[in-house]
Amino acid sequence: MKLTVNGTAHEVDADPSTPLLYVLRNDLGLNGAKFGCGLGQCGACTVMVDGKAVFSCLTPVMLLEDREIKTVEGLGTIDNPGPMQTAFIEEQAAQCGYCIPGMMMRAQSILEANPDATDDELRHGLEPNLCRCGTHMRILRAVSKARTLMKSASAAPAVERA
């Protein structure tokens, strides 16, 4: 079946009931999204589908034909990180880092839907994603910085700012 990930169409040879997460990691080599609980309870596998955050571990690929999938790899590259990634790097918002791609994708979906989301709305919106290291304060700082960077992203690319 055909899957569109980060703007690229892929022909995937997988059982339609396979969770998106497995296809991303095993078939497409996109290892950003992580397997945490497999039950949609931790958020490590969060990616975006049509702009909304979803748990890729319990999203079978059969539901995703003609949908736009975006993973953390779609937010920018190592050489040219996007505003969300830049914010996390600048705030050093990772301890073990396992939850971070999921955090970024959920934050990205919140801010794309509402660029002016308040700190409260961000905090509430990030609720489904867990961090076991206790990096929450840095994560929140990074996300609120991303809110600023995303607004000025078109004016001044993140890479030039740094």
Binding site: A53, L63, P128
Partner: peptide
Amino acid sequence: PAASGRQSSIMPGFAAIM
């Protein structure tokens, strides 16, 4: 949705998936 600050039953919503 999860409750704040205590354990609770949860279920993810499927609005964005299906």
